[in-house]
C-alpha cells in the first residue's frame, strides 16, 4: 500500500471516529477491452469508506470516477481486486451479492426517470420491485416528495418537470428503500449554480437525517469542499489516488462558509493540484 493510500484509509479517523468500515475497495483495478485495445481506466486502488462518512471523489474528466462508482455499485465488475459492501463480498463469481446491492441507492448523472411513470410511481418503483403494497409505497413516495421538495408534482410526468426537480425525484427514488449507502455520480452537474447550491444544502440535510454513507462524484471543487468529510483527488489515466484532503468544518454547513479563508485555502490547494496534473 502506498503512503498516499494509507493516508486515504486512516484519514477518516479524524472525522469518522472509530465507526466501522462500510465500503472497502481492495486493490481494485479496471481495464476495459475495446476494439482499439485495452483502456486502463483505474489502476489498483484501495479505498475505505466508514459508516456515515461523506466521501467525495474529485478529478478531471475521464479519470475514472464513474468507473469506480460503478464498481462499488456492482454495475461493473472489477478486472481484479475485491469490493466489500456493508460486510458482504460484492461478487460471488459472476453474480452480485443481493443483500449488498440492496443496501445501495444510486443517483446517476442523468435523472433516468422512466417517462411512462408519474413522479410518484417513479419514486416508488424500487418498493414495487420489493413487492410492497401499493398504499404503503405511495405513502412513502409522498413523504419523500416532501423531503426533497417536490410536493404537488406527484402525479406529473417526468417531462413536465424542470431538470432540478427531476434530479430531486431521482434522489427520492434512491432513498425510497432507505439504503445505507448512497452513491451519487455528478448528480447536480447539469444544474445552474444557484439550484446547485440549494441542492447541496438539501443533500447535506438529507444525509444528516437519514444517517447514510455517501460517495459523491463531482468535478466542481467548491461543491466537493462544501459537502465532504474527505475528498479523494484522483489523477487520470489510469485513475489512481493523487491526494486525500480532510474537511473538518462543523456541520451543518451553510453557503456562507464558502467566503471563509480556510475554505478558500482548501479550494486553492485542490485547484493547484488539479492544474499540476
Amino acid at each position: 500500500m502506498s503512503a498516499i493510500e494509507e493516508a486515504a484509509n486512516s484519514a477518516a479517523a479524524v472525522s469518522g471516529g472509530a465507526s466501522k468500515i462500510e465500503i472497502e475497495l481492495d486493490q481494485v483495478e479496471k481495464i476495459f477491452q475495446t476494439d482499439e485495445g485495452d483502456v486502463h481506466a483505474v489502476a489498483k486502488t484501495d479505498i475505505n469508506v466508514r459508516q456515515r462518512e461523506f466521501v467525495v471523489l474529485l478529478g478531471p474528466s475521464g479519470c475514472g470516477k464513474t468507473t469506480i462508482l460503478r464498481m462499488v455499485s456492482g454495475l461493473l465488475k472489477p478486472t481484479s481486486g475485491n469490493v466489500r459492501v456493508a460486510g458482504h463480498e460484492l461478487w460471488h463469481g459472476d453474480t452480485r451479492d443481493r443483500e449488498a446491492v440492496q443496501e445501495m441507492g444510486i443517483v446517476f448523472q442523468e435523472a433516468n426517470l422512466f417517462p411512462w411513470l408519474s413522479i410518484e410511481k417513479n419514486i416508488a418503483l424500487p418498493l414495487k420491485l420489493r413487492k410492497q403494497s401499493k398504499a404503503k409505497r405511495l405513502k412513502k413516495a409522498h413523504e419523500l416528495c416532501e423531503l426533497v421538495g417536490i410536493t404537488g408534482f406527484e402525479k406529473r410526468w417526468p417531462r413536465e418537470l424542470s431538470g432540478g426537480m427531476r434530479q430531486r425525484a431521482a434522489i427520492a427514488r434512491a432513498l425510497s428503500y432507505d439504503p445505507e449507502i448512497l452513491l451519487m455520480d455528478e448528480p447536480f452537474g447539469a444544474l445552474d449554480a444557484m439550484t446547485r447550491d440549494q441542492m447541496n444544502i438539501e443533500l447535506q440535510r438529507i444525509w444528516e437525517t437519514s444517517g447514510c454513507t455517501i460517495i459523491f462524484v463531482t468535478h466542481s471543487i467548491p461543491e466537493a469542499v462544501f459537502l465532504a468529510d474527505r475528498i479523494i483527488l484522483l489523477s487520470p489515466r489510469p485513475g489512481r489516488i493523487h491526494s486525500v484532503t480532510n474537511v473538518t468544518f462543523k456541520r451543518s454547513r451553510d453557503m456562507a462558509i464558502q467566503t471563509e479563508p480556510e475554505f478558500q485555502e482548501i479550494v486553492r490547494d485542490l485547484r493547484r493540484q488539479l492544474e499540476s496534473m
Binding site: S73, G74, L75, R96, R98, V101, Q102, M104, I106, F108, N112, F114, L125, P126, L129
Partner: peptide, 9 residues
C-alpha cells in the same frame, strides 16, 4: 434506464 433496473437487482 437499464442501469436503474440493474441497480435495483
Amino acid at each position: 434506464h437499464r442501469d436503474v433496473m440493474a441497480s435495483l437487482s
